[in-house]
Write a protein that binds this DNA or RNA. Sequence first.
RNA 1: GGCGCCAUCGUCUAGCCUGGUUAGGACAGCGGCUUUUCAAGCCGUCAACCCGGGUUCAAAUCCCGGUGGCGUCACCA
Length: 470
Amino acid sequence: MADSVITRYPPSPTGHPHVGGMRTALFNYLFAKKTGGKIILRFEDTDKSRSKKEFEESNFDALQWLKLSFDAIYKQSERTLIYKKYLGKMIAEGTAYLSSEETYISEGGEEEAEDEKGEHRERRSEVIRFKNPNKKVTFTDLVLGEITVDTSELKDFVIAKNLEEPLYHLAVVVDDFEMGITHVIRGVDGIYNTPRQILIQEAIGAPRPVYCHIPFVLGQDRAKLSKRNGSVPITEYRKLGFLPEALINYLALLGWHPGDDREIFTIEELIKEFELEKMQKAGAVFDVEKLRWINREHMKKLSEEDFKKGVLERLPENITALPGWSEERFSRFLPEIRDRISIFGDIEAMREAGEFNYIFDKPVFEIARILPAPKKEVHPDSKRIESHILRLIEELDRIPKEGFTKEGIKSALWEYATKEGRGEVLWPMRVALSGKEKSPDPFTLAAVLGKEETELRLKSAAERLHKLNE
RNA sequence: GGCGCCAUCGUCUAGCCUGGUUAGGACAGCGGCUUUUCAAGCCGUCAACCCGGGUUCAAAUCCCGGUGGCGUCACCA
């Protein structure tokens, strides 16, 4: 057999893809790429009643979004003939047999127990069972070590409903054999499937792949991640504005460790560093906070152009329709946005907080709010504040347009602000420019707004203060 | 319940194989600094070897026994 590695990711299209599945796909992908091997995508859709085209597509989309590519794609529903061939051979050789004992479908809420009319039905079924040799199976798992299981409890388990309708175990073993799979990397729950799959392998004369069972991704309650404890479809992360490379990075760190203190990796770096031997045995709780942090780190690496594009995609229409909107002002504001968000979805929170309104429209505020909170025994009075603002306008006016940058503005005002008391000068300046209790610092604001707009806003604030004084 | 897997700060983890520094890092939290705000950044800080025995001069690490958590027991995958 070929010694080059072939792995597979076998989702069953019975639900939307989630982080657990994607992490399994990722590990298969990393291992294949690391070893210069291949990876196969195989839809396990032998259960016709539960498999849906829609889920197949969403699995596909998620994989594509994460940029996990495959060397081949199969669908089990299109391989009936192949399974039939093996089934026939097994029956002929006596490793499987037709079983026709009477079986009653229990009514315990199973959909299968009811037909279209909603009536319970009894069914006498004939199925194909595996002739269990009832022996102990021992296999070596790459992360868990040697495992021995007595398979006699499994009895003669069913491997197909009939020659045309194979069941999971049969299909998996046949496919892994036919596709030359060398490494089976899957979640730990697959550990229970391994013994019976080995039994089938031995019956059809298939070689045993290397098994690697990776620990679960857990929810906050430490149970296997599922819808009810916080699992979210992958598409949600895209909607929330996470970067695919950040999700990849985070998922890789869930159960795997590079061996040193690095935490931020590109997919290429992961491929280079990845080793199955460094897998953790225990399950790992999925923590969105850490994901957000990793996303932030990846966002820092985005080029100005890409970041701008990402922001623009999520910026509500009405922001760009604001009277003060201009490409230039937006570009000057961009670094500030990058500082304030962890995921692109945070732009929505910025919008809600009104961060864009005062940048691209006039600030709206109660003039009394321009007075800084009293510090010590010095209480600010509005006349003094007015004179500060007037003075700021003068100083600002002396700065040439090219020098109107954060640093330029700061050095122009610093001496005066320090002499008069920074709080008493800078707080009013900031409020005059933003109208907000919270905002970026006054120098940044002035630089973003530009010389003209800054002076306009300061003048307007001074006038309102003046009226307050009369 | 049977069977199986697992067990280090709140979370992700390093260290375990090949016993030997104050058990290290990151996220979160807390505190401070920075341009009286916010965010970011920087600095600092908090906090863990599941329990009980044993072996040993020495145990997170080796051995035994508990406990706990999770998973699994389909004509689903």
